[in-house]
């Protein structure tokens, strides 16, 4: 991550990092900065869906009527639109995250390093298989 900011608390006695002054809108200056910030902000939607899932479990525990009201609320236009945006943001998170797996996961077979495309591909395959399992369980009725 190229944008780690020194918190300044560990600099005592050491030369301080030079920080180039940047305008507050630095991330709007070019496409790479903008995509970086969009990627980082997808975490808001990841957190949002985690909270929504917790809320849904709670509704499920409150009985059939309360749960039906919860699902009905999810189907309201505003909520459905939010789910649509959440899906797009989380897909962007998924693609950027899985594309980074080769830099983090290093597997060697003998002297040979398993190529990046194979590692990323395996993670994409895992996503497809797991999605299939979840869909299969939930579509049982």
């Amino acid at each position: 991550m190229g944008f780690e900011v020194s918190d300044g608390t560990h600099d005592a006695g050491r030369p301080r990092l030079y920080r180039r002054p940047m305008p507050l809108g630095w991330w709007l200056q070019n496409g790479a900065y903008f995509r970086f910030v969009v990627r980082e902000l997808t975490c808001v939607f990841v957190g949002l869906f985690a909270v929504l899932s917790l809320w849904q479990v709670r509704a499920l525990g409150q009985g059939a009527e309360e749960y039906a009201r919860f699902v009905e609320r999810l189907g309201a236009p505003a909520f459905a639109a939010l789910s649509g945006v959440t899906l797009v943001a989380v897909l962007y998170h998924a693609v950027t995250f899985l594309n980074l797996t080769p830099t983090i996961v290093v597997i060697r077979i003998g002297q040979q390093r398993v190529p990046g495309w194979a590692i990323a591909g395996a993670h994409y395959a895992a996503a497809v298989v797991l999605s299939g399992v979840v869909a299969w369980i939930l579509l049982q009725g």
Binding site: V46, A50, L87, A127, L130, S131, V134
Partner: peptide
């Protein structure tokens, strides 16, 4: 979340 959230949200 990369592996499982998209299908759950959908």
């Amino acid at each position: 979340s990369a592996l499982l959230f998209p299908i759950h949200i959908f």
